[in-house]
Amino acid sequence: MTYHRAILLIVFAVIVGAVSTAEAGKRKCAEDYRRFCGQWGLETRGLQNCMRAHGNYLSKRCVKGLIQAGAISQAEVNRKRQALGR
C-alpha cells in the first residue's frame, strides 16, 4: 500500500509542477496582455486570437513564457520569425 501512495504522490507532484510552470509562463505576458488585448477575458478564445494577431509585437519574455506554458510551440515561433525575415 505504501508503494501506491508513493506513486500517487509523485504523479501529483508532477501535475502540480506542470500547472505552476504553465501559470508562471503566462504571467510573463501580463504587460503585453494589458497593452494589446486587455478587452478580452482571461482563458477566452478572443484572447488567444488577439495574442496571435499581435504576435509580432509581443515581448521576448512573453513569447518565452507562452512556449513554457505550452500555449505555442517553438516551431510555430520559428515559422513566424522566418516568415518575417528575422
Rank of each mutant, 00 (worst) to 15 (best):
I10C: 10
R5M: 08
T21H: 07
A13F: 01
Q74S: 13
E76F: 12
A53L: 05
R35V: 06
L84T: 13
K80N: 12
A75I: 08
G55F: 11
A69T: 08
T2C: 11
T21P: 04
K80W: 12
L9Y: 02
I15V: 15
A53W: 02
A69D: 01
T2M: 12
N78M: 06
I10D: 13
F36L: 05
Y3P: 00
R86N: 13
M51S: 02
K60N: 12
A22S: 14
G25Q: 13
D32W: 03
M51G: 00
G65D: 03
G85S: 07
L8M: 11
Y33E: 04
G17Q: 11
A53H: 11
A24G: 14
R79I: 10
G65H: 01
T21W: 12
G85M: 03
R34V: 07
R27M: 08
A13H: 01
S20R: 10
G46M: 03
M1F: 13
L84S: 15
K64V: 01
A83G: 08
K80G: 10
C29I: 09
E43Y: 10
E23C: 12
D32R: 01
I10L: 13
W40G: 01
K60Q: 14
I10Q: 11
A69I: 07
Q48W: 02
E31K: 05
T44A: 00
M1P: 15
Q39P: 01
R61V: 05
Q48Y: 04
A22G: 15
A71T: 04
V16Y: 09
I7G: 06
L42Y: 12
A75K: 08
L47W: 08
H4E: 11
R5F: 03
A75H: 02
Y3T: 06
T44V: 01
G46S: 06
E23R: 15
R45D: 15
G70P: 05
A83K: 11
C29P: 02
H4Q: 12
N56W: 06
I72K: 05
F12D: 02
Q82C: 10
A75Y: 03
V63R: 00
A18M: 15
A83S: 12
Y33N: 08
N56P: 00
R79Y: 14
A69G: 10
M1G: 14
R34W: 05
A18W: 11
I72F: 04
Q39G: 08
A22P: 04
Q74Y: 13
A71C: 06
C29R: 04
N78F: 02
L42E: 11
Q68T: 12
C50S: 05
Q74E: 15
G65K: 02
F12C: 09
S59G: 05
R27C: 00
I10G: 12
H54K: 15
V14C: 14
